[in-house]
Design a protein around this nucleic acid. Structure first.
Length: 422
DNA sequence: TCTGGGGTCCTATGCCGA
DNA sequence: TCTGTCGGCATAGGACCC
């Protein structure tokens, strides 16, 4: 048995915890670079504003309805997420953190009534963090997701919906009412294709023959069908596996033309990616760099290039990775374009212990280099990202992302601590 | 002016050698 | 020796998730 616990409108709710005046008002949180609305309060959803709507396209409506927009404050959200997850861990030893704002709990080892447990979880999280959560409980993950959807949509559930507590008639009705697009694993493309085949609701999909679904669609959708029928196919992953690839990319706050500025950005992204790499104690066997113009500016000349290079030896060393990345950049950079985004990807990740040495390569003393990286990580952890960095990362980052309405880091910066009673 | 970032998994495809 | 087939593998690209 699984519970899916999901924070309602997570980023918006985090902002509201520290600014209660936002309660009841239409609030959005924007993506990096203040691009699109990625979290919407219920008031905003009621205005019909879609997920990922570009902010510049909703400016007018926003002004009309007094929508308050925040830049993403990941330091705040990550910290609040950690608090929620550690509270949830108290309720079940089996926990899979699925994303920043949701997790699955395994309930098999828990004897008590599941809905009651759900209610207690909800109240505890609300009381200890100020964040509202909804909970879906079911024998498969896909059904738990579906129940979570119901718990959010219908207030009569009071935030907790358990599949087994719905009578047969209700289950039937739900299946006939909910459209396939709401199902976990069915996105926009698949919805269109399924609709063409006469499959519109959850009930339709459940009735379909799993073998046929596998042939015509994929093994993934076949599993979804089985899970909707109550047969678990997707296990709880309570130990998070190491990442197989690490990506760091950003859209620029303003267009970039020079190779020099691109090199600063790429260098900055490599450093960030390499930090993540070392945190999971991996080394990368290959690295890719990409740069591109803004595809939305259709009148501008477009250019987009992505090149992957194998490394002569797997590495977790920022200096070495930076050297390789800048070498790639030199080969893909073409002058005369307005670049909007760049990124670095680390691939072929493997444990950084026992890396096969290279007979003919001369390299820096690996122990010294490891110490250097470790020291940089330590300093940057303590004093803030980028405190210590390579000169190639530059100083005047004209390309830095826009964050025009960033809230304080209420919980992670001493200077930003909220003051009570003022 | 202004359209996110970071992942995973699956499938199709083409190449290689047996 | 030539040709066809098949499995394994690498790769690119698409779809999906939040």
């Amino acid at each position: 048995m699984f519970a899916l616990v999901d924070v309602n409108n997570f980023y918006v709710s985090c902002q509201r915890v520290f600014e209660p005046r936002l309660e009841g008002k239409p609030v959005v949180v924007l993506s990096n670079n203040d691009g699109c609305a990625v979290s919407r309060s219920n008031e905003v959803k009621a205005l019909g504003i879609a997920m990922a709507k570009p902010w510049h396209q909703m400016r007018e409506v926003a002004e009309q309805h007094g929508i308050i927009a925040y830049s993403s404050n990941y330091a705040l959200y990550a910290d609040m997420s950690n608090r929620v997850m550690s509270i949830l861990r108290r309720f079940s030893p089996d926990q899979e953190i699925y994303s920043i704002d949701e997790c699955f709990l395994g309930l098999d080892a828990i004897g008590r009534d599941h809905t009651e447990l759900g209610m207690e979880i909800r109240q505890t999280v609300q009381k200890w963090t100020g964040l509202p959560v909804c909970i879906g409980i079911a024998p498969t993950k896909t059904l738990a997701k579906l129940c979570n959807h119901l718990a959010k949509k219908h207030s009569r559930f009071a935030g907790v919906c358990e599949w087994a507590k719905l009578d047969q008639a209700t289950q039937q009705r739900v299946m006939q009412e909910v459209t396939i697009g709401e199902i976990w694993g069915v996105g926009r493309r698949l919805s269109v294709k399924l609709n063409e085949d006469g499959i519109f609701t959850v009930a339709d999909l459940m009735k379909a023959d799993p073998e046929t679904i596998r042939m015509r669609y994929s093994v993934v959708l076949q599993r979804t069908v089985m899970e909707l029928r109550g047969q678990p196919c997707i296990d709880l992953e309570d130990v998070a596996p190491d990442k197989q690839q690490i990506l760091c990319s950003r859209s620029f706050g303003q267009l970039v033309y020079s190779e020099h500025e691109l090199a600063e950005a790429v260098s900055t992204y490599v450093a960030r990616a390499a930090e993540k790499l070392r945190r999971q104690q991996s080394a990368a066997g290959a690295l890719a760099v990409f740069i591109r113009t803004n595809p939305n500016r259709e009148k501008d000349p477009q250019y987009s290039k992505h090149v992957l290079v194998p490394l002569s030896q797997p590495s977790d060393d920022t200096l070495q990775l930076t050297k390789a990345a800048l070498w790639v950049l030199k080969r893909i950079y073409k002058p005369g374009y307005a670049y909007a985004k760049a990124g670095v990807m680390l691939l072929e990740l493997q444990p950084n212990t026992g890396i096969q040495g290279h007979l003919f390569l001369e390299s820096a003393d690996p122990i010294k280099r490891a110490n250097l990286n470790e020291t940089m990580d330590k300093i940057n952890r303590q004093w803030g990202r980028g405190t210590l960095r390579l000169a190639s990362a530059g100083f005047n980052h004209g390309w830095k992302m826009r964050q025009n309405n960033l809230s304080p880091c209420w919980t992670t910066k001493w200077a930003d601590l909220p003051v009570a009673g003022g």
